[in-house]
C-alpha cells in the first residue's frame, strides 16, 4: 500500500471521526457532567424559563424549537423527604424563580447559566412557583405548581388564574369604546393573571396580608361611585379625555372631591406599583406585587383600564339579573 493510500484512509477515518465527534461529543459531555454532579438518590428537575410563552417548562428548549412552538407548563412532582435538585435555566432573558412555600428563591436565572438548588420537601402539598422579574408581556403568566406527594392539585392549589395567552390577543378596533379598550388592555397586559378574570380577584398570594390578590371589580365602590349614573358620568368624561380635576366645581357626583382623590390614588398605584404587605413579617416576601406600569402604560391606557373596572360591578349585577348592562 502506497503512502498516499495510507494518507487517504487516514483522512477518511479522521473525517468520519470528526463528524461523529462534533455531533455526539457535546451530548455525551452534557449527560456525563450532569450525572457526575448529581448523586443517584436525588430527584432532578430541570426547569427552563421561556419568556415568549410565559412558562417555566420541563421540556428541552433549543435553538431549533424555541421560535416555532409553545412549551408545556411544568408541574413537577416530588416525593416527601427525598432530596431534590432543581436546575434552573433561561431560554431567553433574565427570569427570577421563586417558590416561597418551600423556601426557594428568589433566584435570578440568566441565559446560558444553570442555577442549581438542592432541597428536601418536608410536607405534602401543592406549592406555587413564580417568576419575579418582569420578563416580557407574558411574564404574569409565568406561574405554576410543584406537587409534593400525591394530593389532588386542583383541591389544594386554590383559585387558578385564567389560562389565556393574553399577550397574543389582537387589539380592539380604533373606534372601540374606552371600556372595550380597557378590557383588552386589562387582559393583554396580564392584569388578568393576578387580579383574575374581570378583576374578580381570589388569586392566592403567599404570605400576603390579605391572602389573595385584591379584587378590582368593586373599584366603583372604592372610588365612592355608588350609582350607575355616577359611574357613567365618570366613564363618559374619561372617554372624552376630560380631566376629572377640571370638574371639581360643578360635578353632579356626590362627594366628588373624595372620588377625585381616590381616582388619583388608584392612578398612582398603577403608575408606581405597590409592594405587597407581609402577613408574617418574618416570612418570605409575597411573590405577587403590583409592578410599576409608568413606562408601559400611558395615562390614557390607565384611564381605559379604570373605566373598564368601574363598569364591572354594574355588568356583573346585570348578568345576575339577566339585564343588559
Amino acid at each position: 500500500m502506497t503512502s498516499l493510500k495510507v494518507a487517504e484512509m487516514t483522512a477518511v477515518v479522521l473525517t468520519l471521526g470528526g463528524v461523529v465527534g462534533a455531533t455526539a461529543v457535546p451530548f455525551y459531555y452534557e449527560t456525563a457532567s450532569v450525572e457526575r454532579q448529581i448523586p443517584p438518590e436525588r430527584q432532578v428537575i430541570t426547569l427552563t424559563g421561556v419568556g415568549h410563552d410565559g412558562v417555566w417548562t420541563d421540556e428541552e428548549v433549543t435553538g431549533a424549537n424555541y421560535w416555532r412552538r409553545s412549551f408545556r407548563r411544568a408541574r413537577p412532582t416530588l416525593e416527601v423527604g427525598k432530596r431534590a435538585r432543581l436546575r434552573l435555566k433561561s431560554a431567553d432573558v433574565v427570569h427570577t424563580f421563586y417558590l416561597p412555600a418551600l423556601g426557594i428563591g428568589p433566584v435570578e436565572v440568566y441565559p446560558g447559566h444553570v442555577a442549581e438548588i438542592a432541597f428536601t420537601p418536608q410536607e405534602e402539598g401543592v406549592f406555587e412557583y413564580y417568576c419575579r422579574t418582569v420578563c416580557g408581556t407574558p411574564h404574569f403568566n409565568m406561574r405554576g405548581v410543584v406537587i409534593v406527594g400525591s394530593q389532588d392539585p386542583e383541591a389544594t392549589a386554590g383559585r387558578r388564574p385564567e389560562r389565556v395567552e393574553y399577550w397574543r390577543e389582537p387589539p380592539p378596533p380604533e373606534d372601540a369604546s374606552l371600556v372595550r379598550r380597557g378590557e383588552w388592555m386589562f387582559r393583554q397586559k396580564g392584569c388578568i393573571t393576578c387580579h383574575g378574570p374581570a378583576g374578580q380577584g381570589g388569586v392566592p398570594n403567599w404570605n400576603y396580608v390579605k391572602d389573595t390578590v385584591p379584587a378590582l371589580n368593586t373599584l366603583a365602590q372604592t372610588m365612592f361611585l355608588f350609582s350607575p349614573e355616577d359611574v357613567n358620568f365618570i366613564v363618559e368624561r374619561l372617554e372624552h379625555r376630560v380631566p376629572l380635576e377640571s370638574l371639581e366645581e360643578d360635578a353632579p357626583v356626590p362627594r366628588f372631591s373624595v372620588v377625585l382623590a381616590q381616582y388619583e390614588s388608584i392612578r398612582n398605584v398603577i403608575r408606581r406599583g405597590n409592594p405587597a404587605g407581609k402577613k408574617d413579617p418574618k416570612g418570605p416576601a409575597p411573590p405577587l406585587e403590583m409592578p410599576a406600569w409608568e413606562s408601559r402604560l400611558s395615562d390614557a391606557d390607565i384611564d381605559a383600564i379604570i373605566a373598564y373596572l368601574l363598569t364591572q360591578q354594574r355588568r356583573e349585577a346585570a348578568e345576575q339579573t339577566g339585564e343588559t348592562p
Binding site: A22, T62, G63
Partner: peptide, 28 residues
Amino acid sequence: RWFQFAMILPNLVLFLLFLMAGTFGSPV
C-alpha cells in the same frame, strides 16, 4: 497532498459543532 485536507478538517469539525450548537443550544 494532505495540506488542504489538514487545513479544512479542524474547521469542518468546528462548523459542524456550530450547526449543532445553533440547533440544540441556547436560542439566545
